[in-house]
Design a binder for these strands. Structure first.
Lengths: 350, 350
DNA sequence: AAAAACGGGTCAAAAAAAGACCCGCATGGG
DNA sequence: CCCATGCGGGTCTTTTTTTGACCCGTTTTT
């Protein structure tokens, strides 16, 4: 006996309803993020004709949710308050709330937030995930703690969406890892600095390549400055990180073909901090570097906030966050549903 | 600060939504009550073209909620379970749940059930009210008690919708009043008997005209049989009754023009058991009869279940049930919203 | 000052919905 | 037993809605 959600009930007698709701919500959200914005760019974004978008806008205008001005389309006050207040209703209606509950039990984590939409289809979903993660982060902050943030687009989204309001006193933000040769916007250092700025907190950076030989690492550890920061990182109370798919991360690190093959053989699906996980959640390989040093970081911090989205990340998410009762998991509808599919429970039907 | 319901949120971005939901639900409900039923009669009932109704049916059939057979349209199993399980979701969505809460506080009664729809537009609403009242009645039943039911269409609906299942042992059903020269189907005696039959309980009838002179009454009270039943009625633990508008009840009792005028002058709005109430809830007049005898019945029973619907009854409902903390009130959306209007709180917008 | 982008208007094409009517068939009453 | 009734389904035309395409005057930006 599975308890039926409102969504199942109401969608049955009005099958066109979820589509309408999601469409309008996405439109409203897009305007929220890129106002003032013109019809044509909106139409292009959603890949619909200009005329059909116009009709939608007309409806939203009649509801006094958007204002249409010569500069473009903007949300009214009512529209803004709606776009921030509606997600709970919408999530409940779309069955995402029950999905969250299922995932909490399935993955045995502390809490799960499922953001409507699919990251792979709509870039805004990433921002929404950032917002959700930022909200959780704010709740976890306490005076005097150390906050470690990792790199990647997901964490960058968190930094972007974090509101600019002071945090509890004496918080230090540190990168959870070194550089990875990525774009600077997505490096842990950059993100740590931006988060610290938003929180009006202190921050320390780790100017160190992520990939390093054991010898080089040992030598560097004798450097007082570096040792200091590494200790700081290891004393972190909160850890925020994304999740990579094994294949893409290996490729991005420029792994040799034989390494790729080895990873595939061992069944690597997910990656975090240079540690590769198989689908049973075991670490099967780590790059010889800080990964070694940071490997058990996740075991000591009080709160871990994991942010990841997109259907292709589903396997990696399951591998990485499974059975971690202190983890908060923020993901998108696409990944969440894919996970349920992996577990054979088709769950909500769309 | 009024808490916003899901309805307000979602209806804002999809204004056509409540209409669709209500339309489909009414259709489903109508089929439920009159299956197997044909397209044409359904179209006539809802006063729409046959073709538009057909489209609705097609949608419901695609959802596998109805089965279309040569004999007519029937609900599938899924449809039946939906039509009985959906009202909570729908009510919450339409804001009726918050309406119920407001009315409980406003009228200071034990509980309020608002049934979707308007009795004056859709006769089925009466049946739904009957179902809701029947459910409450079942909850109130205890072994050995006496149940008094009144007359009228609302109580008749309760009797109709009461499921045919045994009640706790040794329950006696009695009419709460005598006859009123109405159709036999709506007389208290008839209804009491039908309720008893459904509950598989005992019943006693009161073969006495409702309108009687004091002398005649006194004489009849010497009759042992009659006295017995009246005592039984007065020992009732549960009372079920409807509510009449003062004007209509006076007319139906064949009151003389001068009496009508007097009632109007005194501001009579509601009637129960021959007692006329003004809008402040005071009894301003009662017909010389059992009313006298039964006047304070309502003050002694443990549970009172009041069933009334239609916008025109709003005033009467407020007058009669105001400030009775042991009353359950079952009414329809029409009456409920009209009551809120009377109180100046427009509340939900349609 | 020029160029780009904005919303709004308009008109024809296309699609969807609605109305009207007929047909074969199962059912139920005579 | 048969026939009249009411059933769903099909189909046609008409009407309404939706969509696409394009232009225009104005504001904003560069």
């Amino acid at each position: 006996m599975t308890l039926t959600s409102d969504q199942e009930n109401l969608s049955l007698i009005a099958p066109e309803l979820p589509e309408i709701l999601v469409r309008r919500y996405r439109l409203l959200r897009k305007i929220y993020y890129s106002a003032p914005v013109g019809r044509r760019s909106l139409a292009a974004y959603f890949q619909v004709g200009e005329r059909v978008l116009r009709r939608e806008i007309d409806i939203l205008r009649e509801q006094r949710l958007v204002a249409v001005e010569p500069r473009g389309i903007t949300l009214t006050e009512a529209g803004e308050s709606l776009v921030t207040s509606i997600p709970p209703s919408l999530k409940s209606f779309l069955g995402l709330t029950v999905l969250e509950e299922k995932l909490v039990k399935l993955l045995r984590v502390k809490d799960v937030i499922v953001v409507p939409g699919n990251l792979e289809n709509d870039p805004i979903v990433l921002w929404e995930m950032g917002r959700a993660a930022a909200r959780i982060l704010r709740e976890c902050l306490k005076p005097g703690i150390v906050l470690a943030v990792s790199g990647g687009t997901s964490c960058a989204a968190l930094a972007d969406m974090l509101s600019e309001a002071p945090a509890p006193s004496d918080i230090t933000v540190v990168p959870a890892r070194g550089g990875l040769g990525e774009e600077v916007d997505y490096q842990a250092n950059t993100i740590a600095a931006r988060v610290a700025q938003k929180l009006k907190a202190n921050y320390r950076l780790l100017h160190l390549p992520d990939f390093l030989s054991q010898e080089a690492l040992k030598m560097l550890l004798r450097e007082k400055k570096i040792k200091e920061i590494l200790d700081l990182i290891n004393s972190a109370c909160i850890l925020v990180h994304g999740i990579g798919t094994a294949e893409e991360m290996a490729r991005r690190r420029g792994a040799a073909p034989e390494v790729m093959e080895m990873l595939r053989e061992k069944g690597a699906v997910g990656e975090v901090f240079g540690c590769f996980y198989n689908s049973r959640g075991e670490i099967i390989e780590h790059v010889p570097s800080l990964g070694l040093y940071l490997e058990d970081l996740g075991n000591r911090v009080e709160n871990v906030i994991v942010v990841a989205g997109g259907r292709k990340k589903a396997g990696a998410i399951v591998a990485v966050v499974g059975n971690h009762p202190r983890d908060y998991l923020v993901l998108d509808e696409g990944a969440a549903k894919k996970i349920m599919e992996l577990y054979g429970e088709t769950g909500v039907n769309f």
